[in-house]
Write a protein that binds this DNA or RNA. Structure first.
Ligand SMILES: [Zn+2]
Ligand SMILES: [Zn+2]
Ligand SMILES: [Zn+2]
Ligand SMILES: [Zn+2]
Lengths: 172, 172
DNA sequence: GACCTATATGTAACTTTATAACATTGCAAG
DNA sequence: CTTGCAATGTTATAAAGTTACATATAGGTC
């Protein structure tokens, strides 16, 4: 694991840095090394396609459509049919290394994999960047709202659209 | 407005009755009459297609895909091309008469239109019914979670998947 | 090493969901 | 009326996701 002393590192901090100026080279390298550690720990195979998809998602704090990912893969000599992208994305999602953003039909790399978490997503409608916000309280409240109706919550998606600090500043 | 004395009526009660035994004929008739009142109030045209789409959605507390709605419309002599359904659904959504369930790529009628609300949705993975849960507290918490990152929340979707009371009972 | 099996990848074909662009209809203000 | 605008109809196409089957490759067994 890299040394973090001088860096803002989403993996090691809360909240998420997607909207803050930060050392993103470190940020993404760290997420990748965590992913590798996790895969080793779980006896999973972080194959070339899977690893490359994760790298592509990690390039920016944005969500990418499966077909955008696929185009990148195809350009690099991997298969060029949808299942190639979807399978890698599904794998990453199952392992908590990426998240699906349902409002965007798109995927984003998880910035702090390994830590059990079920974040809320903040989606900037201007710059399209996506941040994870801690959502333990929200999940608990949702469980409770369900329970009030006799409903057993098993999974949930909490997504907000709005303006990130930079885009809000630019608009004002 | 119908007399509610003897009925469970989602429009007049909280929480939602989708998962409870209730007089659904009243429930849907009430929602429709509220929609009509609302349209009149706002000077909007609840045209035959739009009204029919709302009726179709109101038949059950389920989410329907745009193409399911379209098939129904086509069978009844309306246009049979996607925009016919999407336009009506978009209109209903804008007016708060229907909601889009993003996890399902589907739409459901709002059971208490008119009242300002931004509900959380509870989606039963077994019977596919959808209920609206009050979510003022959740929205507030989400706004706050965004604010903590300098993010201005403008809209959000909160959706939970799980088991409704009846399906949970059947499984046990 | 040779073999077998499970997992992963490649590929073709297709389904489902959604939008863009333009023509037509029909009500409604003047 | 007639003129304009909102709604609907229609054609075509784009975007997102899945099914089914063939091929390749990693790991374990003998
Ligand atoms: Zn970063
Ligand atoms: Zn932004
Ligand atoms: Zn009902
Ligand atoms: Zn159910």
């Amino acid at each position: 694991m890299p040394d973090h002393a001088d860096h803002g590192c989403p993996g090691c901090e809360s909240p998420d840095l997607a909207f803050a100026r930060h050392d993103h080279a470190h940020c993404s390298a760290d997420a990748l090394s965590r992913a590798e550690a996790l895969a080793a720990e779980r006896g999973l195979r972080l194959t070339p396609v899977r690893r490359r998809v994760l790298e592509i998602l990690l390039e920016e704090h944005r969500a990418m459509g499966a077909y955008d990912v696929l185009n990148r893969l195809a350009a690099e000599g991997f298969g060029n049919q949808p299942p190639v992208a979807y399978r890698a994305l599904d794998f990453l999602e199952e392992q908590g290394l990426a998240h699906r953003i349902r409002r965007l039909n798109a995927f984003t790399a998880c910035v702090h994999p390994g830590e059990a978490h079920a974040p809320a997503f903040l989606i900037c409608r201007a710059c399209n960047r996506v941040a994870e916000a801690p959502a333990e309280g929200l999940r608990a409240a949702l469980d409770q709202a369900g329970a009030a109706l006799g409903f057993a919550v098993e999974g949930s998606s909490i997504e907000a659209v709005g303006l990130c600090p930079q885009c809000a500043g630019a608009a004002a």
